[in-house]
């Protein structure tokens, strides 16, 4: 027995489906208009949207302010990039304890990126989730910095110079070259994640995660393993951010430690807040908005940060529902 969905939820579905229709049409329209050069930007938007939506699971639903999601994004990118790099150089990625070769197969690389980022998130989460509030913010930040320097320390992957990739991954033996294939991969990943995440946030798991945000003690008293639920959410979130990183690595043909930096972590949070936390679709919208802002404003003025800064302030102080809340006219919360 389900209650009829409140109007803003119905509006949300309509908006999401309209958005999907636009995104499906975009490659054809842009190619017809001879504006295909916008596709790489859109692909980046989709990838960051995926990363931001993943962060939203822990930040928006779990109330856990992770200031270290750049580490998972970057780890995914480096794993995907390293696999291409070693496949190109015909050297093994790992000699010990087991020998792992590079790979151009997306069906190997993307899961590997998610797995590595997820494993990292599990480790970081296992330590960080024992803390609360400011401690959690600072500790995730510090662990992300640690990962940043650890990756910089690997001579094979270019340090601060970044890692140039000789090719892109291949899917079912078709190279993801050109503008369109990777765009579709990114779109499918995003839609897939949103669908699954939307369901599970409404299911027992999501309710428990949200419940722990509202009242941790009560959830514990009710017998929910709060720590374990959070750790699972954190791990999945990290893994999906890693997937986004793998898309970004392929798109850019270049992996840079910049992806692991704390500024990247900060931008992911901004995307979530700009779009509206705890809405999944909002952070995607936030990612599109932020990157569009960067693309358009940086072409007009080099001081575009002076626009973004006050905007962000205004968002925090006055518009706490975010973009998505405006779109679906959701009642204010929090």
């Amino acid at each position: 027995m389900r209650e009829p969905a409140p109007p803003h939820v119905r509006r949300g579905w309509i908006a999401a489906q309209a958005g999907l229709a636009v995104l499906v049409a975009a490659p054809f329209v842009l190619t017809a208009l001879d504006r295909a050069w916008l596709l790489p930007t859109l692909t980046r938007m989709l990838a960051y949207g995926l990363g931001a939506a993943a962060l939203d699971v822990v930040l928006g639903y779990g109330g856990l302010v992770s200031f270290g999601h750049g580490a998972f994004l970057g780890t995914g990118a480096y794993v995907a990039g390293a696999l291409i790099h070693h496949a190109g150089a015909a050297t093994p990625l790992l000699r010990w304890p087991v020998e792992i070769d590079g790979s151009l197969d997306a069906l190997i690389a993307f899961p590997a990126a998610a797995l590595a980022a997820g494993a990292l998130a599990f480790l970081i989460g296992a330590v960080s989730l024992r803390t609360r509030g400011v401690h959690f913010i600072m500790i995730t930040l510090a662990f992300a910095q640690m990962v940043y320097f650890l990756v910089l320390a690997i001579p094979e992957y270019g340090g601060t110079d970044g890692l140039m990739l000789p090719a892109r991954h291949r899917l079912f033996d078709l190279p993801l070259d050109g503008d369109q294939p990777l765009y579709w991969v990114a779109l499918v990943l995003l839609v897939g994640f949103l669908t699954i995440a939307q369901r599970s946030m409404e299911a027992r798991f999501g309710l428990a995660l949200r419940g722990a945000r509202q009242n941790e003690r009560r959830m514990r008293a009710l017998g929910y393993p709060v720590f374990r639920i959070r750790l699972v959410a954190f791990t999945i979130s990290g893994a999906v951010a890693g997937l986004a990183g793998a898309v970004l690595a392929n798109q850019a043909g270049f992996v840079s430690p910049d992806l692991l930096s704390w500024q990247r972590s900060g931008e992911l949070i901004i995307m979530v807040i700009l779009g509206g936390q705890g809405t999944l679709f909002g952070p995607v919208l936030g990612a599109f908005a932020l990157l569009l802002l960067e693309e358009e404003l940086s072409a007009v003025t080099e001081h575009w940060m002076l626009v973004l800064g006050p905007l962000l302030l205004a968002c925090v102080l006055f518009f706490r529902r975010g973009l998505w809340g405006q779109v679906v006219r959701a009642p204010a919360h929090g």
């Binding site: 916008l38 569009l292 358009e296 973009l323």
Partner: peptide, 24 residues
């Protein structure tokens, strides 16, 4: 971009802006 409704419309107007940038 801000989170107000009007600015949201401004944002969607920016895509055609990018589209309209003339090929040199």
């Amino acid at each position: 971009m801000s989170c107000t409704r009007r600015d949201l419309l401004g944002a969607s107007a920016a895509v055609p802006l990018a589209l309209a940038t003339p090929a040199l």
